[in-house]
Design a protein around this nucleic acid. Structure first.
Length: 554
RNA sequence: GCGCCUGUAGCUCAGUAGGAUAGAGCAACUGCCUUCUAAGCAGUGGGUCAGGAGUUCGAAUCUCUUCAGGCGCGCCA
């Protein structure tokens, strides 16, 4: 068992079930909870309240009776009390906390892992920014969220693939091509109009200039198709290369870069449209082919335009079918901006139409980032080009702060990013607080090593010397990690990890102020050294999941 | 108009498979550095969980409703 809390819970479940049957009650699916106040025990059970009705007794009476039948022999349970409306509270002896240290010693960088995923395969698709320009704040949040979520799922025992879907064909690429062509011709002295619908950003002009630096103006008089194709291929590869570089700076590495154009090349887009037609999920209207998403037609969507060109939606159906039916993933998780939520129901009904259970597709809707500057909302439209890019953000606040900051809030909460504060590199940023705890620990370990005192194995230490409140709090917090990982994985909320890291750092700083590691009593010194080494490992594992450095010095 | 998300301390947010006295950080105030990093610790004050009704032993959490803000409702993605 790699989870000390689960071990304790299992003991309690077993002991309470025995008591229920010994007392002659019917079995109930009771909960083992963690009371908010430690004074109410390490765990509590609500069985008495649930049994009260069928037993025709007040909850407290049921609880008293159950408590009499609880046998604590051979368990961590020290004593049992009935309290409040009928809670049965379990107080454990300290040995359950001590047992976490050998666990950490044994598992090291794997401590915290659980097996709730039981090897289920999940593809996590995130960022998937259009390669038509630089990445922005929304991609920054999506990147931090998606990568950390995938890391959490891996820790929870899922077989995870990180994937970037590259929209390298279709309508927006055509717009991209037109924008490039116009900028190219303008740079070459040819006056051409620039459509308001095109990409207005400076980066398009830069690409045109770079293209000219290599090819000069020789494409000015070339056939338009040839000109656009040359420009697009050049700029696309350049942009994709820059995206990969930026994401790598952001400590994100994908297992798969999946190209939309491959779905057309392989014929999967045509194939999926044919399948939908055969199954009767399509109809023609106004010259276009529509997908019938619902009876009322409210959510119907065009698959093939009247001009014969397939929509992004059609390619996206083929893409998701590919995930499930061609590559066989059990689940697919997509991180989407909240502005795409209208797309979710359609995609799920498309999957259903193809015979894929729609709940295998889970879309995490991430509320958009609102950029605040000087107390005002700064707009970040890509077309207008007036956006803070991910590159600039990383230059200004650093990777650690960005990764940590974007994982401090739940995906569903709106995010006001105060640019002034971030640029300040203010100490308000809790990432320093957590990293400082890690650096402090490393410093102590370094100093003791200088005196010839090293971290020993648990077998050679008397862990039970750890009796101070701060020491026990630390052990308790370390023991919570596997539960936290499991909860974060179930809720798809990696933000639990940053909150846990702050709590653990907080417990360490409290310990640091209350207890000295380098004390005369060599036995106690060794026990405390072991304790902080376990904190170091735990902090490092959590920061690794979030994608933040665990520095040895600050 | 319809749909999704959000509303909790002055600010930013946790807590929502119903549980005990609703938490944290920041800001404010009071203490703590001759000993392992003060980027730290200890403490104080601060609440109509947006409003209302309902469900039950028990509701911030579930249901209904009102209000406020964000986003969406394209042969864009």
């Amino acid at each position: 068992m790699q989870n000390i809390r689960q071990t304790a819970r299992n003991q309690i479940i077993s002991v309470v079930n025995n008591a229920i049957s010994s007392a002659g009650f019917e079995s109930v699916p009771f909960a083992v909870e963690t009371p908010r106040e430690l004074s109410n025990g390490d765990f509590s059970v609500n069985a008495a309240m649930l049994l009260a009705k069928s037993a025709k007794l007040p909850p407290r009476a049921v609880a008293d009776k159950l408590a009499q039948f609880i046998c604590t022999k051979g368990t961590y349970i020290d004593r049992v009390e009935v309290a409040g409306p009928g809670f049965i509270n379990f107080y454990l002896n300290n040995s359950w906390l001590y047992d976490v240290l050998p666990l950490v010693e044994d598992l090291k960088e794997n401590y915290g892992q659980t097996d709730i995923g039981s090897g289920e395969s999940i593809v996590v698709e995130f960022v998937s920014a259009n390669p038509t320009g630089p990445m922005h704040m929304g991609n920054a949040r999506g990147g931090a969220l998606g990568d950390s979520m995938a890391n959490v799922l891996r820790f929870a025992g899922f077989d995870v693939t990180k994937e970037f879907y590259l929209n390298d064909s279709g309508n927006q690429i055509e717009k991209f091509a037109c924008s490039l062509e116009a900028r190219y011709l303008q740079q070459c002295g040819v006056e051409v109009p620039f459509d308001e619908e095109w990409y207005l950003g400076e980066d398009i002009i830069d690409r045109a200039k770079e293209f000219i630096a290599i090819h000069g103006d020789k494409y000015v008089n070339a056939p338009q198709d040839e000109r656009k194709a040359a420009l697009t291929e050049f700029a696309l590869e350049k942009n994709i290369g820059e995206m990969k570089k930026t994401l790598s700076d952001y400590r994100i590495s994908y297992d798969v870069w999946y190209r939309e154009s491959d779905l057309y090349k392989s014929g999967e887009v045509d194939e999926v449209i044919r399948l939908l037609q055969e199954k009767g999920y399509t109809y023609k209207k106004d010259g276009a082919l529509w997908f019938k998403a619902s009876e009322d037609g409210e959510k119907d969507e065009v698959l093939i335009r009247a001009n014969g060109v397939a929509t992004y939606f059609a390619a996206d159906i083929a893409y998701h079918r590919n995930k499930f039916q061609k590559r066989g993933f059990d689940r697919a998780i997509n991180i989407w901006g909240a502005d795409h939520h209208g797309h979710v129901a359609r995609m799920k009904s498309a999957m259903e139409a193809l015979g894929v259970k729609p709940d295998r597709l889970e879309v995490v809707l991430m509320q958009l980032v609102r950029l605040m500057q000087g107390g005002e909302v700064a707009r970040m439209s890509k077309r207008s080009g007036k956006a803070i890019t991910l590159n600039v953000l990383l230059d200004e606040i650093g990777v650690d702060a960005a990764r940590f900051f974007f994982n401090m809030r739940n995906a569903g909460s709106h995010f006001d990013f105060d640019l002034d504060l971030a640029v300040e590199q203010s100490n308000n940023n809790p990432v320093y607080y957590v990293q400082y705890a890690h650096a402090r620990i490393c410093s102590i370990i370094r100093l003791l090593a200088g005196d010839g005192i090293f971290v020993k194995n648990c077998g050679d230490i008397d862990i039970s010397l750890l009796k101070e409140k701060e020491e026990l709090n630390l052990l308790r917090k370390i023991g919570e990690l596997p539960d936290e990982i499991a909860l974060a994985a179930q809720a798809l909320e990696p933000s639990r990890m940053t909150r846990y890291a702050i709590e653990l750092a907080n417990d360490f700083h409290s310990f640091y102020s209350a207890c000295r590691v380098n004390v005369e009593d060599r036995q106690l010194c060794q026990a405390r050294l072991k304790l902080i080494d376990a904190v170091r490992i735990t902090l490092s594992n959590v920061l690794g999941i979030v994608g933040v450095d665990a520095p040895e010095k600050m």
